[in-house]
């Protein structure tokens, strides 16, 4: 069962996250890793952040898309496992609150995927220095 029945929260201050134009953007400030969630993944994220348990989110998605509940439940459990393994989410021990409203969902169901960009440092290393004749105003 893992963390399916547990309410989860962001592992702050290590993790920062926001939802922009339907994409959940997450950053591990310790490792410098960047994560992106879209479509069903972003929907599950918003539900978890609104106080839903993984089990409740899976049940709601299964009903909404008419998919075998066991399949969605397994997908969500695996997805939460990935988020926990990356230290993105931790169990929330605060007293239960009323979960947020059922969000607008993506038009179709895709098994949730955590897109991880662990190569940010390599991409930064490609940064070329600005030639000194520009910075010195020699041009």
């Amino acid at each position: 069962m893992g963390m399916l029945l547990t309410r989860l929260k962001l592992n702050e201050p290590l993790i920062a996250a926001d939802v922009i134009d339907g994409e959940a953007v997450i950053m591990n400030l310790g490792k410098g890793h960047y994560y992106s969630l879209v479509d069903t993944s972003a929907d599950i994220w918003r539900m978890l952040m609104a106080g839903w348990t993984g089990a409740d989110a899976a049940a709601a998605l299964a009903a909404r898309y008419g998919i075998e509940p066991g399949i969605v439940r397994a997908d969500v459990e695996k997805f939460i496992g990935l988020l926990a393994a990356e230290d993105i989410l931790v169990a929330d021990s605060a007293p239960p609150a009323v979960p947020g409203a059922f969000p607008d969902l993506a038009p179709g169901y895709d098994p949730p995927v955590l897109s991880t960009f662990s190569d940010i440092k390599d991409l930064l290393a490609l940064d070329p220095p600005l030639p000194d004749y520009f910075t010195a105003g020699a041009m």
Binding site: A16, D18, D21, V25, M27, L29, Y34
Partner: peptide, 13 residues
């Protein structure tokens, strides 16, 4: 990204 400044990353997006 160099500064791990999440607020500015979101702002850039």
């Amino acid at each position: 990204f160099e500064r791990n400044d999440f607020t500015r990353i979101v702002a850039a997006k």
